[in-house]
Simulated scan of single mutants.
Amino acid sequence: MVAELTTYRYVRFALLALLLTLAVSVGAETARAGWQTSLSGYYYTAAGPVFIAVLGAVGVCLVALRGFTDAEDVCLNLSGISAPMVAFVPTPAAGHPPDVHAIVNNALSFLVVLAIGYVVVLVATVRRHHRPTPWGVVGLVATAAAWIVGMAWILLDHTSFAAHAHALAGVFTFLPFAGVVVLNTDWGVRVLAREAASRTRFDAAYWAIVAGMVVVVAVFALVHAWAYALLGVEAGLLALFALFWVLQTVDLLDPERDLASVARGR
């Protein structure tokens, strides 16, 4: 299990490296050409390729990572399958009419592969005679529902999908990840995830991050008319997520917890 734990940690570090790459690229483009009104607006700048690559890679990493609890794993997966769609369907912007054909091609390709992966997971579950936990069922149902909505939307109305799917995918990237933070608090582990005992060393810090998220969203609601309000809330939430990821990585660097993970098959 040593190799598996090492790989797990490398994937965690890779996620931080990806976020840092996006920050550097966006910062360099801002210094050259000025601020965009949102992070998604950088899709149309020189930082666009990095924006797309980072979101795609982040999605893969989040799905590949196994959460310490089933509830956390569900949230990581839902956030992971949403993140690439944020990149594949750019936010509508003045002077940049959506390339509907490209959006349909990219989104359909992603949804087809997602369906294949879903079937593989189901087959593997049946072959192992493994009954999903209640949270596992929630994950399977939520993923299927998201796929059905996405596929039906794109097939029935290309134009509407190209115009609005970006915002919806963004919400369902952020919300489940916020759930991950809550699920790592003492209360989240014991009550929501229904684990027998808490495991975190940073309960107060995690709650402070949750509070920070609420404050960021509340401030955005108050100043949403400001041209750069969306950029501010996105940057604030990403910074808080990165802080959480660093703290959780340190939290998980525990030999006793490693042994527990090995014993649990995780």
Rank of each mutant, 00 (worst) to 15 (best):
S261Q: 12
A23M: 11
A235H: 02
F13H: 13
C75A: 15
L62D: 03
T6D: 14
G139E: 01
V113S: 11
A165I: 00
L156F: 10
F88T: 01
A57T: 08
S82N: 07
Y43N: 07
D70I: 00
W187Q: 04
S261I: 00
W226I: 01
A93K: 12
L168T: 14
A102C: 01
N184L: 00
V214G: 02
A204F: 12
Q248F: 07
T185K: 07
V191P: 09
L16T: 12
Y44D: 13
V210L: 10
D186T: 13
H101W: 04
Y206S: 06
F172W: 15
V113A: 14
S40T: 04
E29V: 10
A33E: 05
L240H: 09
A229G: 10
A196D: 12
A3L: 03
W187Y: 11
G136M: 02
A204L: 09
G150N: 07
W187L: 02
V149W: 14
V216Y: 02
F68V: 04
F202W: 08
Y8K: 14
P84F: 08
L78I: 06
F202M: 02
A242Q: 02
V191T: 15
T37V: 07
V54T: 13
A193V: 05
M1S: 14
L240C: 05
L237R: 05
V250R: 15
A144D: 03
T91H: 14
L16F: 09
V141W: 08
L78A: 04
A211G: 15
V215D: 01
V112E: 12
A227K: 08
R127H: 06
V11A: 10
A146V: 00
G188V: 05
D157V: 01
G232P: 06
H224L: 03
A208Y: 10
E4L: 10
L183N: 05
V54E: 07
Y43R: 07
F110K: 09
L76G: 09
L108V: 14
G80N: 07
H166C: 03
V24Y: 10
S82M: 04
Y228N: 03
V126K: 13
P134N: 04
V26F: 10
A167C: 00
R128F: 00
V191K: 14
Q36I: 00
G59F: 06
A169H: 07
G34A: 03
F13G: 12
I81S: 03
V50Y: 04
H101G: 09
M1D: 08
F241P: 02
V120E: 11
F220K: 00
Y42W: 05
A102S: 11
A229V: 06
